[in-house]
Design a binder for these strands. Sequence first.
RNA 1: GCCGAAGUGGCGGAACUGGCAGACGCAGCGGACUCAAAAUCCGCCGUGGGCAACCACUUGGGGGUUCGAGUCCCCCCUUCGGCACCA
Length: 817
Amino acid sequence: MPYDPHAVELRFQQGWEEAGVATVAEDPSRTPFYCLEMFMYPSGKIHMGHVRNYTIGDVVARYQRMRGKNVLHPMGFDAFGLPAENAAIKGGAHPKAWTDANIATMKGQLRRMGFLYDWTREVRTCEPRYYRWNQWFFLKMFERGLCYRAKRSVNWCPDCATVLANEQVEDGTCWRCHNAVTVKEMEQWFLRITDYAQELLDDLDALGQWPPEVAAMQRNWIGRSEGAFVDFAVEGQAEPIRVFTTRIDTIYGATFLVLAPEHPAARRVTLQDRRPAVETFQARVRAQSTHDRSTSKEKEGVFTGAFAINPFSGERIPIYLANFVLMDYGTGAIMSVPAHDQRDFEFAKAYGLPIRVVVQSGGLESDRLAEAAPADGVLESSGPYTGLPNREAMAVMGAFAKERGFGEPTVTYRIKDWGISRQRYWGTPIPIVHCPVCGTVPVPEDQLPVLLPQDVAFTGKGESPLATHEGFVKAACPACGREARRETDTMDTFVDSSWYFFRYCSPREESAPFEGEAVRYWTPVDFYIGGIEHATMHLIYCRFFTMVLRDLGLVPFGEPVKRLMCQGMVIKDGAKMSKSLGNLVEPDDMIVRYGADAVRLNMLFLSPPWDQLDWKDSGAEGAYRFLNRVYALVEDLAEDLKGPVQEPRGEVPLLRRKTHQTIAKVTAELDHRLKINTAIAGLMELVNAAQGYLASYRKTPQERYVLREAVESLVAMLSPFSPHIADALWQMLGHDGFLVDGPWPSSQAAIAKEDEITLAVQVNGKVRGQITVPADAGAEEVLAAAKANEKVAGHLEGKQIVKEMVVPGKIVTLVVR
RNA sequence: GCCGAAGUGGCGGAACUGGCAGACGCAGCGGACUCAAAAUCCGCCGUGGGCAACCACUUGGGGGUUCGAGUCCCCCCUUCGGCACCA
């Protein structure tokens, strides 16, 4: 019977399900292994990116399980979010119905791919029994001061009518709809991720099994910067202006002070006659979109008429507002040292402000600078610090500022507190009530969850649908009982995904977010696979959340993921797959043509998991062809292999050696490097070798032993990659059960080892001949053989050997003159 | 601008610690089977030279270290990703 992928795949998908092989439970007698893939946003249908991500995860989960580990391999849905709501606004179904329908479709597709998930542990973040714990964590953080409300300038997407976190703004546009983002002042809820900035940074060094580029991106994002605060008195005013600088050593070269246009002190310091100009400038900056503001590099500003006093030199310097100073970094105010900072230099040139060199790094003259000179050097024109190397001066001057009380050394971070308020419906309600008397009051724990109402109107205009839902908004104040107003913002969906992997451990737990025993058994996650696009979003948030959970005493560690892998993008014909480019490959079509096993194998074989993958239908055909060959091979041999066997003694047959070498190679690949493409190449080589063996197969018990060992090892090792066909062939060979429970073949070093090796012989760096020697031959013997080689001898004739060496197992090299 | 990753046949890729570059597959070419086609099987397949055995060249470019470099060091080019007026 020819290989029929559909019949085979459906048969075993049903078989696995009926046998419940995917369902796992804690078992202290076995080693746990938590294999996790980023859960799914239920957008409608799965795409090739999902297929790749989940195939890699399924390989790891199945392999670890074949090795005897107790493997937790769950899947769930990141089910809150804007697209569901946008679909409702466009006149579609209710977000809940839309989401449920998509989940049903996508689960079917995952099942058809043969991914072995413990669906009894499925988590959907839009269910009250899940999101109530988001609310619970919110309250816990609120109690600890890790959660606060503040009026801030926030990123606002007019199109989505909601706030965005910094991480969700890409190049000045919304990460979802890619329309321009603007700035808006709003009351927002924030989580104090900055409290953990240092720990988030420090731990990166210990995450040895994370891709270094992800660690680098996070380092960059956290943006630690050492410097100092310095207070500059404002002439005629009591309140000073605090600046942040990383170059306090250059303070004698500060020739003006600059505030961000939105700086709260701007109004206070501006003199009466400068008001109109200052306000015009502020209005112009405010009108700019985030994108325009960050892309226009033109330095523009306005003089406030006020002067500040340099606390080191006593010098009187003008105060400006300028567009290049950002309110949300440092203190929103800087001292400008045009000689040593390029931005300050450009501004000074544009506004005719003085430029003074104070760090001499070689031949610098204040009135001849063509650009700023940020290099290290020796201080000049710097009062008592003149002559000091600038690095030393930094420390001394910082300490001096602290001693005199007008500043101090400090550290700032680029990362900001995480704004989680979203003016949308389809998310977790924030458990807060605003009371006219008591103010902001948290909803008591025993009143959770604050349920998201179902009956809302989706207009797509202005505020969240919740704000106009009378029944939801009206609430009694939990403190005094008076009529109050419920908070109508919902939480950023990244809150949902920050802890879902804990919930999988005990998904039906009703009295806590998760059950301690289960979490201690399974977590931290051993292996996590997902897209690198989450490097500075989800992958920072979930680390932060885990640290908070640790500080709440809920988990015994601060890092949720031991090993992280980011799979590469799936592209087609050199371009990202997308509907608009018309190069979308539908997994369903591929399955119809070649079956899930071939689609999986092709995905895995085309390139290493972390590299970009250029999808080729012809590759799937190749994979399909390979599976056909394996199927035909096993089918032809199945009956014969049940005949008598006897382990061969003495010289190891070539096929047997190849079998054991392949087992060693594939095992090593799946244990450590996960360069799955080369593991599959190894299996292909083994098939070629087995087929070659058939030419001289005489069906002796010894030969049959060798062939059976090869074929059974092959089928078992194929199982993580193409599990359905592997199970079918396994049963054809007379075994019961499913390969997901092993056995994984084992390699014997003595059999895998070559007893004769072929070495190349180099003369003056060029390969001139080949010699075959016993694997354990000594250097003397090898050299003798090399010199005796006819071709080598020709190159030695009439020459003198000046150097000879043998690299065991690798090469022989002779240098002649 | 800063940080990071990468550049190998017609294509995807292999070469794990410096040791015969091109495993494995795709495409292509030739052959077998077939009335024919598909499928399958066998062979060839980096470039140049030679009837040949063989020789020379070849891992983005240039230099270097080494008996020996795709791999290590320096400079440069290109592509991709991240950050970007961060004081």
